[in-house]
Amino acid sequence: MVKINGTELDIAGQTLSEYLSSTDYNIKRIAVERNGDIVPKAMYGETVLQDGDSLEVVGFVGGG
């Protein structure tokens, strides 16, 4: 199982890109933390989610 934003999902083996494309996230407005580190955007396609991974998808909203 892979924990994303606190929810356990049965998506081990998918790439981060594959998971994100199944969601409503706009890739240009997020940062993804995986096991304590930010995953560079260029690595989304080759980052394979492993059993036991813990991720947080941080969405940004406008205003400043």
Partner: peptide, 15 residues
Amino acid sequence: DRAEEKAMLVDTVME
């Protein structure tokens, strides 16, 4: 101000 720019900077700095 813009969400896309925020995400770009965080990504760029961390990478």
